[in-house]
Design a protein around this nucleic acid. Sequence first.
DNA 1: AGGAATCTTGCAAACGTTTGCAAATTTCCC
DNA 2: GGGAAATTTGCAAACGTTTGCAAGATTCCT
Lengths: 342, 342
Amino acid sequence: MATGDDRTTRARVRTITDLARIAGVSPGTVSRALAGKSLVNAKTREKIVGLAREHGFRPNQMASGLRRQKTGVIGVVIPLGHDARQQISDSFFMTLLGYLADELTQEGYDLMLRRVVPGEDADWLDRFIGSGMIDGVIVIGQSDQFALIEDVADGYLPMVVWGNHKEGQRHCVVGTDNRLGGRLAAERLIAAGARRLAFLGDTGPIEFAARFAGAEDAASRMGVSLVALPTLLSPDRASEEIAAHLAAHEGEIDGIFAATDTLAALCLAALREGGIAVPETVRLVGFDDLPIARQTAPPLTTIRQDIAAGAHGLVQLLLRRLAGEETESLVLPPQLVIRQSA
Amino acid sequence: MATGDDRTTRARVRTITDLARIAGVSPGTVSRALAGKSLVNAKTREKIVGLAREHGFRPNQMASGLRRQKTGVIGVVIPLGHDARQQISDSFFMTLLGYLADELTQEGYDLMLRRVVPGEDADWLDRFIGSGMIDGVIVIGQSDQFALIEDVADGYLPMVVWGNHKEGQRHCVVGTDNRLGGRLAAERLIAAGARRLAFLGDTGPIEFAARFAGAEDAASRMGVSLVALPTLLSPDRASEEIAAHLAAHEGEIDGIFAATDTLAALCLAALREGGIAVPETVRLVGFDDLPIARQTAPPLTTIRQDIAAGAHGLVQLLLRRLAGEETESLVLPPQLVIRQSA
DNA sequence: AGGAATCTTGCAAACGTTTGCAAATTTCCC
DNA sequence: GGGAAATTTGCAAACGTTTGCAAGATTCCT
């Protein structure tokens, strides 16, 4: 057996031409056989496929990509607006990335990942698209690059973005209805007895701004107060910042809507530290429904984003755009998950 | 201005030949100019680079890759041994992935991500390597594929694996000294007053087995007992399982070493549920030092893996292997982080 | 049996870069 | 000013695959 293997494997077969020589046919035929085209005789195909397997041959994707003018690779890019956001956003974006990997694999695409810092590289999106390495691109998070993305969208069809939907925008986006989510959160706090609300989080990023706006909608409709407690979101500083906010508003707040479960968890720790009972004294609602939401004490009431559905939507829309179709954006409904913090 | 732009951009310049025509030189010269080679006259280069920028031209990476026989892409593959492990492993692996993305970008490489289920696709590693799309590969986690990875390592140099180091193995691995970590955990539990220890986690995966072995070392040396409480690690079932374990060993255990912070967090919840005081009645130590470890109540004492250092090591070793060097494995020291759970 | 219709195959030209080689140009030195 | 040396360019052949076209086999029908 070993000798047999040695003999057949002796000259490594790396190209379709090598295989053609061994099989006694032309390279074109091998190509057609391996591609499973119907233009090749069944017996010939069988023989070629057998030989390919035996020699562990796989056609070179680069050459194939070059010739066919498509690569079978989808680019996934995460713009990091300010470094500070990076760590906080990780948990959510990374989970989304995992689902994306699964969805794309299932559709036969590979995934090329890039993190970029737009500040250092104004050209990030064009560069990725122009590289010729990817058939389409998924942008995870608009960060502060809304305008640039809009520009690119005008001349480049196969792009889908995870983020917030804004009336009349030109790029195709998939995302949760943040405003509705914010409303649900505030309504829950109010239903749980809160009358003096606070929003914990930076209102700069567009998604967070929408969550805040939704909360404002509910608060003003129900006639309760709402104050914004901006945080830098830098993971090291967030804890102190939150504690400072809580101290500054001691006794003036009885319901907190955190922009993110991660922030909510930190907030919960700060409240515990301060001896403030949750949910008795202060009610708390998070956003995302990350795994951590289940594991805090008490478990977090939160607004769930359906990450799996989001990934699915991103990929399906992208596929249709790859086929040349102009697609609409997709706005997913958030869902209130009641646990024990509110 | 608009007219000027229109005129120059009129015929989209997509290939190096297009640009050559405009610049009045040969394609070869353009190629050399853009590559920054010294064989081209400074003035010519300047002109060409200027035109390239003006027209937003970027050389096609596929063609370049094909010709140069290198792609500038590193494959990162996550084998999912059994589906069950997937979700639990996410938190740690995804963080590692983030750091890898940064390290690789910094070195000028792109990252191609693949998740594979070895059970469904026995050929996963060869297929990735043979695709011709990547210059090297980083495997995140050995899962249950140790033997297969060893085989591949014999014939393929540019591969580095995150995982456990085993005496005499042939593939280059970067990872934490799990056994030492296990010892540190057990020693901490004992120092905190525990005498009847338990290990919470599946001892199947090789990393976890090593952690358990390390704990055994310490336990037997110090003359305390240690029992293994295997868990399936499927996220839905884990909670119930842990609760069952705790109930079964009620009062017989005063120190728990959880294989993972995620498990430790679940365990903490179960203990709280059962009204068992931590760390007074039962001491608890986790592993990884994930962000969550800081946010539980009480915060977790845990064994820290330096993920950033791991990512750095993986990339540096891979680079040396790409240069043809045979490299040794890299074993990183774990670090005990004392918080309040033990 | 003879030709039309259908299958299979081979040929050769792409896909867009890079690069060894040699030709053309410039610079330098005596 | 003349030739050697150095610099700058162009030419054309790769890299490994796919695919339109046409030629060669087969099959089928009358």
